[in-house]
């Protein structure tokens, strides 16, 4: 099983290489990366020419790409195009923050969605079922940035009424967050709204999957067998239904890591969080191919990790896979 998962993991490496190559190709072919530099009045043609030569921007792009690849093992991801600062420390910082946001949102969304999906399947056609269905449609149809803005407005309105700020509406930490436990409590407090905004779409989507697979499991023969044994409904639900219904839901959840990253790009922008998403928007704005590629590699790495996790979980939940 682990072997199988690892093999699949290895296949993703060439994909990763290909995607950075393509990115590099069209980023560097689709415009002048030094355009921004040219706009600045106090920079001379000579200075620009010096940057060009130093970064080898006149070489054919495969050469440039290889040079970039070569430096990864030693120097991390090299430096920004224009400012001679290393990329890696920045990435490292924003990576941790985004992981906190994304992992927390995913776990919370999963727990809520599984519960909602299972309960609405068990109470199919009830008021509860119709309400969750309607809400999930709403969740699908709502841009997450707009939901985030609504949350912000809501918190401010509450503040105006009660004089109490229930949640911070920006930043990852207070100016003086303290250390240890206090720091993490402060962080959690700051992340409540971003997590809620990020989780809403996942909840809507996973709960639909859970409901559907739960319904399918509920009408399966082995549930009939379990009933015919005289098991209690609670036992049937927890022992026989939930675990089987979780299998497809887990897969869907693990494969939507990319969606979460997409969400983080938006949410971090709205809440001004110092994470990978906002970083990405920044470097895109600057049209600097190097940090964009570094970002892609990091995200690709996490995608692979998420895939591996999905495979392992899948194998754990489904013995039919485990021994293949």
């Amino acid at each position: 099983m682990l072997n199988y998962a690892l093999r699949r993991l290895l296949i993703t490496i060439p994909i990763l290489i290909l995607s950075t190559f393509l990115t590099f190709g069209f980023v560097s072919s689709s415009g002048d990366p030094l355009a921004d530099l040219r706009q600045q009045p106090n920079i001379t043609q000579e200075q620009i020419q010096r940057v060009r030569e130093m970064r080898g921007l006149d070489d054919p792009f495969p050469v440039q790409y290889l040079r970039w690849v070569e430096q990864i093992p030693q120097g991390g991801f090299g430096e920004y195009l224009i400012s001679p600062r290393p990329i890696w420390p920045d990435l490292q910082r924003v990576m941790g923050n985004t992981l906190q946001l994304v992992v927390a949102a995913e776990l919370i969304a999963f727990a809520i969605a599984v519960t909602l999906g299972a309960v609405s399947a068990k109470k199919q056609y009830s008021v509860f079922d119709y309400s969750t269905t309607t809400l999930s449609f709403l969740g699908f149809s709502m841009p997450s940035f707009w939901f985030a803005l609504l949350l912000q407005v809501g918190v401010v309105i509450i503040y105006r009424w009660t004089g109490y700020r229930i949640f911070p509406i920006a930043n990852l930490s207070s100016p003086n967050p303290g250390t240890g436990m206090a720091f993490w409590l402060d962080r959690a407090h700051h992340l409540v709204l971003p997590i809620a905004s990020l989780a809403i779409f996942s909840i809507a989507s996973y709960s639909r999957y859970m409901r559907a697979s739960m319904l399918e499991v509920m009408s399966s023969d082995y549930i009939r067998t379990a009933r015919a044994k005289g098991l209690s409904e609670r036992k049937i639900t927890t022992r026989h239904m939930m675990r089987n219904a979780l299998i497809p839901t887990v897969t869907v959840a693990a494969l939507s890591f990319g969606t979460l990253i997409s969400g983080a790009i938006v949410i971090e922008t709205v809440f001004g969080l110092d994470g990978m998403g906002r970083y990405f928007i920044n470097v895109i704005g600057r049209r600097d191919p190097y940090p964009i590629m570094a970002w892609l590699v990091i995200v690709g790495f996490f995608l692979m990790l998420a895939n591996l996790l999905a495979d392992l979980l899948y194998g754990y939940l489904d013995p039919r896979i485990r021994y293949e």
């Binding site: 023969d221 082995y222 013995p319």
Partner: peptide, 10 residues
């Protein structure tokens, strides 16, 4: 149908 009458994950 004995194929489907047993829970595949237990």
């Amino acid at each position: 149908d004995p194929m489907t009458s047993l829970n595949p994950v237990l």
